[in-house]
């Protein structure tokens, strides 16, 4: 079951295990420059507002109601990253429950670029594993490099979906979550205890403007590939058979610009995010995350062939990115495997 709580999706599988709970947050962030540089991770600037589409049945397009799910407002001047959090992640006495997570934009997998399928696939891994993967910022284009999720009007030709399929059909973002099988989790807990005991014995001995160009009448927005960023998508350390494919939950996240959001909900979204230049000039931190023990998956050839928003814009002769100055992040906070308490990417401006 998926609940909407505090602008987060809380996904629980009480029928599988009482610990089987995952929180998915959609963090607002600045658009990193879309140039030839590869940037560290930008900060989280607070959660996007999330609402049930059913709550605005009179104002949303009929196809949104068919798909169900939730909706969020996104300025074209900002970007998004996803945070996967397990409630018990900081409680070291309990092993956080593992989940396999599929993320797609316009029903095109953000990891492989393949069209949406409801199952998990391992030959070309089309999912991520939480809690090992704490964040996802974009499309996996190379090993250790992603292109940032940025919102563009569906139908303008920028979205990954349009570039991959030639159609502007779905837009939005899609998520499916699969819990680990109970028996596999319990086996993992036993193994963890054994390791923990061994360590103990051993020791005894010794944290809008919409740009106006190509504004479509459609309410839908799609995610397009923005600037390059260092981020690894980790290989699944478990077996495919460890995932409970019988118990999954999925959600369609509809994206709309601030004006559409305001006309649907009657409320204003927050101010747009600062530009990368404003943020960097203020000396605020960027982030890096490494897990030396995990293996990163290779970038997907399909996604590697995507053109960034700037590249499409140049081809079309548009001015999609009025604020796209390169920056040199100097203040970079580096986190190592397994986030510790207080190791967050959120910055309060």
């Amino acid at each position: 079951m998926i609940e909407l709580k505090g602008n987060s999706l809380v996904i629980r599988f009480p029928e599988v295990h009482p610990q089987a709970e995952l929180r998915v947050e959609f963090q607002r962030t600045l658009r990193i420059p879309d140039d030839d540089k590869t940037y560290p991770l930008p900060p989280g600037l607070g959660k996007f507002a999330l609402e049930h589409v059913d709550d605005h049945a009179a104002g949303v397009p009929p196809h949104w109601l068919e798909r169900g799910g939730v909706m969020l407002p996104m300025y074209q001047a900002e970007a998004m990253w996803l945070r996967f959090a397990s409630p018990g992640a900081w409680n070291r006495s309990k092993l956080p429950y593992p989940f396999a997570i599929k993320v797609a934009a316009g029903k095109q997998c953000a990891v492989t670029g393949e069209s949406w399928r409801n199952e998990l696939h391992r030959d070309q891994q089309d999912y991520m594993v939480a809690p090992d993967q704490p964040w996802l910022d974009g499309f996996c284009i190379e090993k250790g490099v992603i292109r940032q999720f940025v919102a563009m009007p569906l139908g303008a030709g920028y979205s990954a979906e349009e570039q991959l399929t030639g159609k502007a059909e779905h837009g939005g973002l899609q998520i499916a979550v699969y819990p680990m099988k109970r028996e596999s989790y319990e086996r993992l807990c036993k193994k963890q205890r054994t390791i923990s005991d061994m360590v103990k014995d051993c020791c005894l001995a010794s944290a809008e403007p919409t740009f106006g160009f190509h504004r479509k009448r459609s309410a839908d927005m799609g995610l397009a590939p923005g600037g390059r960023m260092r981020q690894e998508i980790y290989d699944d350390p478990y077996e495919l058979g460890d995932w409970d494919l019988e118990n999954s939950s999925r959600c369609f996240v509809h994206l709309c610009n601030s004006l559409v959001w305001q006309s649907i909900t009657g409320s204003l979204p927050p101010h747009p995010a600062p530009t990368a230049k404003q943020y960097t000039t203020a000396g605020l931190p960027w982030y890096d995350y490494y897990d030396e023990r995990a293996t990163a998956v290779d970038g997907a050839a399909k996604l590697a062939g995507l053109k960034s928003v700037r590249q499409v814009s140049d081809d079309k002769g548009d001015v999609a990115l009025p604020e796209n100055e390169s920056v040199t992040p100097e203040c970079i906070v580096t986190y190592r495997k397994g986030l510790q308490p207080g190791q967050v990417r959120e910055t309060w401006l």
Binding site: E3, H52, R67, G68, G69, K107, H170, S249, R250, F252
Partner: peptide, 10 residues
């Protein structure tokens, strides 16, 4: 009575 996010056809 906890409200679930409704999944539809997509």
């Amino acid at each position: 009575v906890v409200r679930e996010v409704r999944d539809g056809e997509w």
